[in-house]
Write a protein that binds this DNA or RNA. Structure first.
Lengths: 259, 259
DNA sequence: AACTGTGAAGAACTTCACAGCA
DNA sequence: TGCTGTGAAGTTCTTCACAGTT
């Protein structure tokens, strides 16, 4: 999903399809679980089931990485864990900064899934002076003034934005100027970044809206099938006092940090 | 991205492509912003820029909904807000429950983006008896024992799971048994659900891993191309004893709720 | 016999480019 | 003239089905 502007033409190098890259972390998780249970090998069928995809897709995905399996047997779990980790760049340490330590930022700081996969939270940054120094997840919150020095001192290239929408672009600009080239954005805004910078977006409200769409469909099917209020075609302006109500400040995202 | 098992063949009805549905919330957000600034109409070009997509795609997307624009002019903002809201099912009220009130669950409960789009948090549920009654985001946390009655009393059909991985499937089963048919899963597990139930997955660690992949590529290109070390490459670490190391409990997700 | 690796067919999605309407 | 709506072409992703290997 969303990799805003700047998504390199996916060409160059021995390109692995984007869709495949997006599934590698899934396989890695399933494999890690098997590894912990000391399972030595898996078939594409079993692993696919554990990862929630179908086996043909999994085999095709792996074929882009190389021939890491053994016909008639399956894949060596440990070996595959290593190969996928390497392909994803998880065999190295990635220092990360989280900007915006509100509810969400704090949740992210406490999230255990980062450390276990090569990501190290280098610093937590917030614009609220009152937060400065306060420990969150064992790290003292630093003030936004220090953003640039933190980034360069730690060689940070990945930034996580968990500020309110209004502050996101500004924070993004500073991160990029300081040398960050990959951004994970939780703020409900489209970030504009220069070429060469990757942005991925996670939007809680969007996911719910997609669910609502399907939910509505289900409800519709039950009653529909037959008749009743079909879609009121636009034609004229029909739409009642429409749009009304959908106003008001967009609230979105908790966190501190005044624009 | 991820809609685990059970993703209805997308057929039936006057099917809107899944990819289009996933973008409607994006358009809706951009339109809402325009609406707040009292902008009466937009061209596909302008709206596309605001939503971060290209205009041809936007026009194609809208063409699946109907002909809501005016040639030579553009789209009526208010009218389009209404049509998209209706299509997404946001003109009705969706009661939602959040299960697992740890850091993440609390962040979700405080998230303003829900209420402003037709989602109402009907209840916060946690397995920790010590949490029961404690107010979070203005709502008292309820104990898991009450899960079934809360769902049926409020006619909840959408559930959000923010528990640790170990508890997710169990919670999911109970939600489904109680009547929930759409689930937004933040736990790093593949949920198994019966047909007819939709699952969407949001995985913080996966997004970071995808960024790391691209980041690694960039680093590789720089040196490859020939010249000096620009971006301060992250910590070495090589990946010696191969596969080893990647062990240890998967920690993941904060939150309470013992398995 | 069991299971991988992969060409080839098919489906979904995106982009082009232009006809058509206000 | 300006901009939408959409067939058609192009691209990416998925699935099939089977040859190849242990």
């Amino acid at each position: 999903m969303a990799t805003g502007r700047t998504h390199r033409p996916a060409t160059r190098s021995r390109g692995i399809p984007e869709a495949t890259v997006a599934r590698l972390p899934l396989y890695l998780r399933a494999l890690t679980a098997l590894s912990e249970r000391s399972v030595p090998t898996v078939s594409s069928e079993e692993l696919a089931a554990a990862a929630g995809v179908n086996s043909a897709k999994l085999r095709k995905d792996f074929s882009y990485l190389g021939s890491y399996g053994t016909r008639g047997v399956g894949y060596d779990v440990e070996y595959l864990v290593y190969q996928i980790s390497r392909e994803l760049g998880l065999t190295q340490d990635w220092p990360v900064v989280i900007v915006g330590i509100g509810n969400l930022g704090a949740a992210l700081a406490n999230y255990g899934g980062f450390a276990s996969r090569g990501f190290r939270v280098a610093a937590l940054i917030d614009a609220d002076p009152a937060m400065a120094g306060k420990p969150v997840a064992g790290l003292p919150v630093r003030h936004t003034d220090e953003l640039e020095s933190i980034i360069s001192d730690n060689g940070v290239s990945i930034g996580v934005i968990a500020t309110p929408a209004g502050a996101a672009q500004q924070v993004c600009d500073r991160l990029v100027a300081a040398g960050v080239t990959s951004i994970l954005n939780f703020a409900p805004t489209v970030l504009v970044v220069p070429d060469g910078v990757d942005v991925r977006k996670v939007d809680l409200s969007i996911e719910l809206q997609i669910l609502a769409f399907h939910e509505q469909r289900k409800a519709g099917e039950e009653t529909a099938e037959g008749a009743a209020a079909a879609t009121p075609r636009p034609g004229a302006a029909a739409a009642p006092a429409a749009a009304g109500g959908r106003k008001g400040p967009d609230g979105d995202v908790p966190a501190v940090m005044p624009a």
